[in-house]
Simulated assay, not measured.
Amino acid sequence: MEELFDGLLNDHLGFVVWAALAFVILLILLAKFAWKPIMGAISERERSIEDALLKAEAAKEEMARLTNENEQLLKQARAERDLILSEARKLKDQIVNEAKTQANVEGARMIEQARLEINSQKAIALADVKNQVAALSVEIAEKLLRKELADQKAQDEMVADLLREVKIS
């Protein structure tokens, strides 16, 4: 077996040397021309990944800041909305109370006006009744006097009675 190995080694020794020499040259060429660009590309890739991670972290922080700002704006908007609603309720209550007060005043004024109108109509009606009663009384008295004074003797007696009453008073 050793002979076989020696024979193969002697026959292929030139090939191994040339292959080793080609491999060393290839390594030198790769180290000089390919290794630096490959390592540069890897370094560049590492830097771009690191930059991307930093940018992602910055974006995450910015997003958190914006979210916080949005929450603050929402809280402020809710507070403003509550204030506006509260003021609207107060204004509504004020308007309703003013309307009630005005309605009460107007109602009282209308009632007073109606009372005055009723009193005025009552006074007119009473005056009318008094006038009618007076007219009827005069008419009745006239009829009675005509009847009583139809004869001359009754007239003389009545005039005498009236004169006595006037002198007494």
Rank of each mutant, 00 (worst) to 15 (best):
L73S: 07
A64D: 05
E44R: 04
L116S: 03
R81G: 11
Q132E: 12
E165D: 02
E148P: 04
V138L: 11
L4K: 07
E44L: 01
F33C: 00
V24W: 00
L13T: 10
A20M: 13
E71Y: 01
G107F: 11
F15W: 09
D6W: 06
K92Y: 03
L83K: 03
V129C: 02
E50M: 07
V96G: 03
K100C: 04
A56P: 03
K90Q: 12
L85A: 12
K92E: 08
R109I: 05
S137Q: 11
E61L: 11
E106R: 04
K90F: 09
K143P: 01
A58W: 06
L91K: 05
K143G: 10
S86Q: 11
L13S: 10
A19T: 14
L145M: 01
L74K: 14
L4S: 13
K36P: 07
K100G: 03
A160T: 01
S43W: 09
E139Y: 01
L144W: 03
Q76P: 12
R115S: 06
M1H: 15
K92A: 05
A56F: 08
Q76M: 15
A34D: 05
K122R: 11
R164N: 09
E69H: 05
N10S: 10
K32W: 00
K122A: 05
I95K: 11
W35K: 06
Q121V: 06
N97E: 09
L163C: 07
I38C: 03
L85I: 08
A41H: 09
E71G: 10
W35N: 00
E80C: 05
A134K: 13
